[in-house]
Computed example of a mutant assay.
Amino acid sequence: MSFAFVCQHSTFIVFNTLKIPTVRVWRRVAIGSLTIVGLLSILLSLSGYLSFFNETQANILNNFPRTGEPAIDAARMFLAMTMILTFPMELFVARHALNNIIFGDPSNMPIPTTRHVVITLSLWTLALIVALTVSNLGLVLELVGAFSGSMIGYIFPALCYLKVRRKNRKALKRVYSDRDLSDERLISSKVFDFHLWANYSMLIFGVIAMITGSVLAIKNA
């Protein structure tokens, strides 16, 4: 579930494709898409588990015969099409991140053509090698979902909020340093407490989910 909701790296790409790129439209798109993802994830996970119970594999398609079932073959075909259509978007993010880390170019600058081709082919070759040598990516997906998913989905956002909040509080204290105590009380009022404890809770949940998920994935491998 954590892995299904980890899509922050595509946020700016999707936002720039909106016909009306406003916060209000983006909120509707984000809430609607996450709701659909959540419902589909629950539906598919429950149906898969109720079909095989403790024998359910990480890739549920491996529970079915490799050939001879038209519906299962169609599901495998649609999964392959999904991976083919999703891969370019993931490659786009990875390419820009690598270019920024290695060469230090700002993310809004276009990548030179030669470098673009080299990075793209390198990433594609690595992915192809993994795909040809690994027959079951269940453990990989479980570890990515537990470790990276928890970091990106819960831990990093909470830490970023706490860092920004600390800077904002320092700035507010400087602004209100020459004013009366009522303004100073505004800085430390309970208006901010809900967001503070919500992010602390998300941070703690992310750490627990990361450790528990990683241990269980390795233990059940």
Rank of each mutant, 00 (worst) to 15 (best):
L44V: 15
I36S: 07
I60A: 01
R185N: 15
M1G: 11
L172N: 12
V134E: 07
L216N: 05
F52S: 02
A198H: 14
I13D: 10
A71P: 02
R179A: 09
F15T: 11
T56A: 03
E69C: 15
I101H: 11
L126A: 15
T82Q: 06
W26Q: 03
G153L: 03
T125V: 13
E55C: 07
S10W: 04
M109G: 08
S47H: 11
V14I: 08
F52M: 02
L123Y: 05
F205Y: 15
N100F: 07
L203D: 00
F5K: 00
L186K: 08
R66F: 09
I42T: 03
T113H: 11
M89V: 14
N59F: 08
S2H: 05
V93C: 07
L216C: 03
L126H: 06
H195P: 02
S189A: 11
Y154P: 02
A158I: 03
F52W: 06
V130Y: 04
V164A: 15
L34V: 09
F78S: 13
H9M: 12
L18H: 02
P106F: 05
I155M: 05
E90I: 04
K219W: 11
Q57K: 15
L186S: 10
M83E: 06
L40T: 14
L181H: 15
A58Q: 01
I204K: 08
F147Y: 09
S214T: 15
S122E: 14
I218Q: 01
K163Q: 13
A221M: 12
T17I: 06
P88C: 03
R179Y: 08
V144N: 03
L181F: 14
V37S: 04
L141S: 02
Y200F: 10
G68D: 13
A158L: 00
F15I: 09
I129L: 13
F15K: 10
N136P: 04
L91R: 03
I13Y: 14
F205S: 09
S47L: 11
F156V: 15
I60E: 01
S41F: 13
V215E: 04
V215T: 10
L126T: 08
F5C: 02
D180T: 07
I218E: 00
V134T: 08
V144D: 01
S47D: 11
V37P: 00
A94S: 11
A58W: 00
S135H: 13
D105G: 09
Y161T: 06
D178I: 03
L79M: 13
R115L: 06
L43Y: 14
N220E: 13
A94Q: 03
V164S: 14
Q8W: 08
I218H: 01
V144Q: 04
S33A: 11
L46K: 07
E142D: 15
I204C: 14
T133C: 08
L85V: 08
V23Y: 10
S148R: 05
D183R: 13
L203M: 10
R76M: 05
S10N: 12
